[in-house]
Structures are given as structure tokens and as C-alpha cells.
Design a protein around this nucleic acid. Structure first.
Length: 493
RNA sequence: GGGCCGGUAGCUCAGCUGGUAGAGCACUGCCCUUUUAAGGCAGGUGUCGCGAGUUCGAAUCUCGCCCGGCUCACCA
């Protein structure tokens, strides 16, 4: 327990005084009949100076400001819907009640009953005839004018951030609406929402380092999932045909403005579809989300106006490199030539790596950040996509696309590999990569192969990074601004 | 993990060519019945992130550590 400073001691003293005078500072329940927004909306017609004495409404919220003027007081209280001004007069609520009211602090949560009037300056205000303390606050609120700006405190004590900075709740309401809209879209198209294991004995479905944990009763190591992909595809084998999961993924990697160790994706799989149909679904769903959440099809992100209407640009991986890095890989190159090109472009790469991986490095370092408007990049080398199906026209390539917006990868999709023998070969190849030192190469999952052996229909799959989509829609500088409790080093409280 | 920047009152910040800590808001007391960053008068704020060192003297200079931000690397 920390030593209490003067401000905290004062609040505790007030708490004791309230108890002594028979007032319960933490009552069990309170019946509210209106929200701040209800009142502002319902009585918005009142003209300055006029009052509707016939109504009697009950609102509850946190005291955010107080302007005490002797025998009367204006204050603002904040509820989930916003803020509303209240006006408390001694001769209306009674002398004793007013004495108690005067001792209340900013941050206390109160319930108030009264009628509605409009002040001289035109603000809809509740004319209070009864005040009930609902929760005594023992800590002072951040300053009313600057609010809470310290980034560390905002992330560590999100509750204070939400109290002090009104716009923060809006980001998380929007985030919720993004997911809700996606659910509605998919549900209406006969997708089934499912839940698959968070703890997996073989972490698969992505190239990433997992978190490890241990199950005591089974005495086995388990891994927090890096992706639900292999489980969702087992469900396609099982005949569910259209499934999706709003999924938390865990990756034991660096933390940055674009990376949190746990992050949210939506993954969906549609039987009898290929990546072209999934591309159309992806575009349609994101367009709907943007429209529902922003009310328009454009938004400013990081200094650029991003347009979501119309057709989205579609390039091949090689085509995009040609357009943005001005290197043409459509004519075959030797490994040495490729390395030379990468070096000339000042692209960093592992000197022992392959042709395709260097191409991928060139794309990531020279092209990705230039893809501001929604752009689909299609057709990736097999080597980089161990779970995707080969292109019929070019077996070296797979039917895969990634979506880029605002210079970031937002979605990844492919025609799912459903040939169990080919899948086994690919996983064996991944194991070799792993032996060569690639910690992120995928593992053999015998049960997944067995599932494919029962027969998986041709299937298109898609994953969309929810956090990144919300970053773009809210023009947030960091992923931590769109995750309520981003990962931080523990503090000593 | 590397580089750069930061941590001073509850909050937002100033003080940093070394001389023993300040403002606004918040808080306490008094006045004030349509204010809205309400106003007026009076008052107390503190391990200056932590620990060493240099010095007569350190918030200030040096070193180490902790926490955070940005950025690079890894990645979605």
C-alpha cells in the first residue's frame, strides 16, 4: 500500500464523514430513467431561459466539472452517452442535502432527479431536486482542461483514459462496430461462427514464434495459437462449408506501433470458392464496414485520404515490384542477379536465402509502404505460401492475395491447398527450412494431413487484421490506441 | 536487441550555463442562486524515476539501472 498523499487522505476523510452522517457512499443500486444524450435530444427544442417543469428524469454519472456559487452549483456529469449539465440549488434540494452536495468531489458518481431547462447561454440542463451519491471516488481526476495526455498512464490505466478523454470511448465503439458489421455480413451469407482451440500442441497456420505454456494434468507443453487456420479447415473437411472465427492470435515477437503480442483477426473459409471469390467478398465486406462505421467511403489516415469506393487496384507481386521498384522479375533472373538487384535497391536480406525470399524482401522494403490506396497484391511464389494452392497456369505460384491499405498489410487470402499429398510435401519442406535455422517455418501436423485425406472441398480462405483496420479507420498513430489494454512491462504499483 | 528522445506536485508543464523547487488546474478555508477553463480573497502541496559518483553544494554534470515514446531490425 502506497503512502497516502494529502489529496488521497482528504478523500478518505470525506468518506468517513459521509459514513458517520449515515450516508452510504456505495449503495447497491439506483434506477436511471434517462441518459445524458436522451435528455439533450428530447429537450433540444427548449429556448434559452425556458423550462419544462412537468418532467422528472433520473440520470446518473460521474461529476466531471463543478462551479459552486454559494447557494447554487452548476456541474457536468458524464455517463456512457456523453455529458449533461446539472443545476443544484440549496432551496430546491434542501439545506442538509446541499451541505452534503458541497462536499462531493469531481470523480464521484451521483444520481440526480429533476426537470429540464435551458440556460441563458442555451445549454440543456437538469434542474435537480434530488441528489444521491452512488460511489465516492478516492482518487482525483486528471486536470479538466488538458485531460490525461501521458501516454504511459493512458495505456496502463485505461480506465482513467476513458474517464478523462471523451474521444477514447469512440475508438472502441467503432472497433466494436467493425466486428459487429463483419459478423452481420457473414451471418447473412450463411457463415457459421465457431471457436477453435487457443491452446494448441502444434502451433500452425502462420510463420511466427509462439508462446509456450504447460498443462499440468496432461503434463504436456501447449502453445498459444499463432492462427486458427488449420482448425478452421478441419471444419471445412467436416462439412460446415462456411465458417469464421473472430480470433485472438498470439505471437512471441517484437512490440511496435503496429504489433501487439496478442492481436485480433477475423478468419473465414468458404467451400467451393477460390481466391477470386474471396477477393470480392473481402472488398465487399470491408466496404460495408467502412460505410457502416464512418458513414462515408473515404477516410484520412496518416496524411492521406484513403478511398474505399470503386474498384480497388489489383497487381501481381511481380507487377507491383515492377511498378513501384522499377525492377522486372517477369524475365527470369539468376540468384546472383537477384541479389545484385536487391543490393542496388539497398534492400536488406539474408545472403544465404533464396530467390523468392529476396523478392519478398524487395516487396516489403520498397513497395509495401507505397500502397496507400486499397490494393490487392496477387500471385505469390509457392515457397512463401505453404498452405496455399498452386496456380493452374503456373505451378511455381499459388493463388493468393494480400490486401494493403495505408502502406500496411491488412488481409491475406488464398485458395486453400486441399491436396493432402502436396500438403505433406510442403510441410516436409518447411521442416527442412526449420532445420536450416528458420525458427518460423511451419511444423508437421499429422492430424491436419489426415483430415485433408478425408477430402476437403476446394475452399477459399481469408484473414483480416482487425486492429490494423481500426487503426486506419480511426487514424490512430499506434496499435496501442485501438487495443484497450495493450501489452506493457509490468509496473510496480 | 540497436539508435534518438523523455520521466519534476493528483494532472498539464516551467526550472537544466550547479546555489537547495515554481505556475495553471485540482485541493483546503471564506464570499458568491443562470455558471460553463465561472469569479474574488487567503493557504498547503514534492523521495525532482532509482542508485552511485564529481562538488562546499546536484532536479541541473558523469556513470549504471528502471519505465515509457519514436525509430530500425523481426512480424500481421
Amino acid at each position: 500500500m502506497e503512502e497516502l498523499n494529502e489529496l488521497l487522505q482528504q478523500r478518505r476523510k470525506k468518506l468517513e464523514d459521509l459514513k458517520t452522517s449515515g450516508i452510504d457512499p456505495y449503495p447497491n443500486k439506483f434506477t436511471v430513467t434517462a441518459s445524458s444524450a436522451d435528455i439533450r435530444k428530447q429537450y433540444g427544442h427548449l429556448t434559452p431561459g425556458s423550462e419544462d417543469k412537468t418532467c422528472s428524469l433520473v440520470v446518473a454519472g460521474r461529476i466531471m466539472t463543478m462551479r459552486l456559487m454559494g447557494k447554487a452549483c452548476f456541474a457536468h456529469i458524464k455517463d456512457a452517452a456523453g455529458r449533461i449539465q446539472i443545476y443544484v440549488k440549496k432551496d430546491v434540494i434542501g439545506e442538509q442535502e446541499y451541505e452534503v452536495f458541497k462536499t462531493l468531489d469531481m470523480g464521484d458518481i451521483i444520481g440526480v432527479k429533476g426537470s429540464v431547462f435551458c440556460t441563458r447561454t442555451g445549454e440543456i440542463t437538469l434542474h435537480v431536486d434530488q441528489v444521491t451519491l452512488l460511489s465516492k471516488a478516492l482518487r482525483p481526476l486528471p486536470e479538466k482542461w488538458h485531460g490525461l495526455t501521458d501516454i504511459e498512464t493512458r495505456y496502463r490505466q485505461r480506465y482513467v483514459d476513458l474517464i478523462a478523454n471523451d474521444e477514447v470511448a469512440g475508438i472502441f465503439r467503432l472497433r466494436s462496430k467493425v466486428i459487429k458489421t463483419m459478423r452481420e455480413y457473414l451471418d447473412s451469407r450463411n457463415f457459421l461462427e465457431v471457436e477453435t482451440p487457443m491452446m494448441q500442441s502444434i502451433p500452425g497456420g502462420a510463420a511466427a514464434k509462439p508462446f509456450c505454456t504447460h498443462h499440468n494434468a496432461l503434463d504436456i507443453d501447449l502453445f498459444l495459437r499463432i492462427a486458427p487456420e488449420l482448425y478452421l479447415k478441419r471444419l471445412i473437411v467436416g462439412g460446415l462449408e462456411r465458417v469464421y472465427e473472430v480470433n485472438r492470435n498470439f505471437r512471441n515477437e517484437g512490440i511496435s506501433t503496429r504489433h501487439n503480442p496478442e492481436f485480433t483477426m477475423i478468419e473465414l473459409y468458404q467451400a467451393y470458392a477460390d481466391y477470386n471469390q474471396v477477393l470480392e467478398l473481402c472488398r465487399e465486406m470491408i466496404t460495408l464496414v467502412v460505410k457502416e462505421c464512418l458513414g462515408k467511403l473515404e477516410t484520412e489516415y496518416n496524411g492521406n485520404i484513403i478511398q474505399f469506393d470503386g474498384d480497388w487496384k489489383r497487381l501481381t507481386l511481380i507487377g507491383a515490384i515492377k511498378e513501384y521498384a522499377e525492377v522486372d522479375f517477369s524475365v527470369p533472373k539468376t540468384l546472383e542477379e537477384t541479389k545484385k538487384i536487391a543490393s542496388d535497391l539497398q534492400v536488406e536480406f539474408d545472403p544465404n536465402t533464396s530467390h523468392n525470399k529476396i523478392i519478398s524482401c524487395i516487396f516489403e522494403q520498397c513497395v509495401e509502404k507505397k500502397l496507400i490506396q486499397p490494393t490487392f497484391i496477387c500471385d505469390y511464389p509457392v515457397e512463401l505460401s505453404p498452405l496455399a494452392k498452386n496456380s493452374k497456369s503456373n505451378p511455381e505460384m499459388v493463388e493468393r492475395f494480400e490486401l494493403f491499405i495505408g502502406g500496411q498489410e491488412l488481409a491475406n487470402a488464398y485458395s486453400e491447398l486441399n491436396d493432402p499429398i502436396e500438403q505433406r510435401k510442403r510441410m516436409e519442406q518447411q521442416l527442412k527450412e526449420r532445420e536450416k535455422g528458420d525458427e518460423e517455418a511451419q511444423l508437421m501436423d499429422e492430424d491436419f494431413i489426415r483430415a485433408l485425406e478425408y477430402g476437403m472441398p476446394p475452399t477459399g480462405g481469408l484473414g483480416i487484421g482487425i486492429d490494423r483496420l481500426v487503426i486506419i479507420l480511426t487514424n490512430s498513430p499506434s496499435i496501442r490506441d485501438v487495443i484497450l489494454f495493450p501489452q506493457m512491462r509490468p509496473e510496480n504499483v
